Amino acid sequence: MPLFLKPVFQERIWGGTALKAFNYHIPYENTGECWAISAHPNGTNIIENGKHKGKTLEAVWDEDKSLFGVSGDAKFPLLTKILDANDKLSVQVHPDDTYAQKYEGEYGKTECWYILDAKEDAEIIYGVHAKDQEELDEMIDHQQFDALFNRVKVKPGDFFYVPAGTVHAIGEGILILETQQSSDTTYRIYDYDRTDKAGNKRDLHLEQSKSVINLSTNSPNTTPKHEVIQGQNYTQFVSNSFFTVERWVMNGKLTYEKPNTYCLVSIVDGNGEISINNDVYTLEKGTHFILTATDQAIIFNGEMTMIISYV
């Protein structure tokens, strides 16, 4: 039986109300993040069905790893979010596993973005214009940010792989689905001198940022692979040791062979159904669930777009 998950919503200074488009009853007028598939302690989902109904995904992962076809004491590796950038996010960087485990006690944060929607001329920051560490440090110290940051125009359907160490920021008017390592460590470099409701600026982490920025990552660097399978449009955006992320654009029926013992599934548009072991479940835009190790004879049917990820 799949695990259907109740989203967790996070209030953010840059958030808005665009997540209502996913049939969510959002709790804040500046809801920035939907943690859609998460076992992270800062926002773990509640399971909505089956024998584990009412438990957190974090607890079920810890107590019943056979459900996922894994063993050992590793933490749940992935986190799926939908982000509403009603305003621009801070310019930031995330550490890799080595640095994060040493200084933060958790995974590093390699991530990727699928652009669900974007206003005309929307842009992200991706990478920096600095030839070496000395120039990078000097430009940060002197706040030469207009010259430092590399800007890239985006449109719906674009995909960006953002390895740990990449300076990045989501711009205003962008809605994305983010697949990332299960980490909540962010180092801010610049936040446009914004203040919160109490008039306080958010913390910056300049020394940590200087330590983890990878100067070799300055341009989006994936080549999606497209094919038609059983009449359905399939795209593999990225596949590496951190995650594989795929998109299925469905118009009909698909007999799905799981590529991993468990897979994370998000319906980002349309609606349909899934049959698993002859049990049928309704799917609609905004539904998120995990196909477990026990789920077999899987058939998707409908007109919908799905993002599927796994390790």
Rank of each mutant, 00 (worst) to 15 (best):
T44N: 09
Y28L: 15
I82H: 02
T305Q: 11
Q236M: 15
V162P: 04
A297V: 08
T287M: 10
N221W: 05
D295M: 10
G16R: 05
I26G: 09
Y187D: 07
T56F: 10
T235N: 05
N271R: 14
V212F: 01
S275L: 02
R194C: 15
Q101L: 09
N150S: 11
E134R: 15
K285Y: 10
N233D: 13
Y310F: 13
M139P: 06
D158F: 06
Y281V: 09
I290Q: 00
L89A: 11
I46V: 13
K197C: 15
Y190Q: 12
L67S: 03
T305I: 07
T166G: 05
D121N: 10
N23R: 08
L148E: 05
L206I: 13
Y256I: 09
W14F: 07
E138F: 09
E123P: 08
I274Q: 04
Y24C: 04
D191G: 09
V268I: 14
R202A: 10
G127I: 02
H226T: 04
D97L: 10
G15C: 08
A164Y: 07
D158E: 10
I170K: 00
E123I: 12
T244K: 06
T287E: 10
A122K: 06
P156D: 07
D117H: 03
K258C: 06
T261S: 14
D64Q: 14
Y126K: 09
P95Q: 08
A130E: 00
L177N: 02
L3V: 09
T282V: 07
T80A: 00
F145A: 11
G69A: 12
L175G: 03
T195P: 06
G72W: 08
Q10M: 15
Q10D: 07
H129M: 05
Q208K: 14
K65R: 15
D62Q: 12
S241A: 15
D64C: 13
D193A: 13
N200M: 11
L89E: 05
L291H: 01
D269P: 02
D117V: 06
T186N: 12
F22T: 00
F289C: 13
E135K: 08
P259M: 03
D117M: 11
T217N: 12
E257M: 15
L264D: 02
R202P: 06
T110K: 05
G252D: 08
G32M: 11
N221T: 11
N277E: 08
Q10V: 13
K225H: 02
G272P: 01
D62S: 14
C263Y: 00
H226G: 14
I124R: 00
Q144W: 03
P7R: 01
K258R: 14
F237V: 11
S219Q: 15
V265Q: 01
E303M: 13
E284S: 12
K201E: 00
T235V: 03
L57N: 01
H25Y: 12
W35A: 12
P2L: 09
V167P: 00
H94K: 10
M250F: 09
K153E: 08
H25T: 12
Q10N: 15
T98K: 12
Y107H: 05
T195L: 12
S90T: 03
E303W: 10
K131V: 11
I229L: 12
T80P: 11
N150L: 14
V93E: 04
S66E: 10
F237D: 07
N200D: 14
K155R: 14
E178N: 00
K81A: 06
T255N: 14
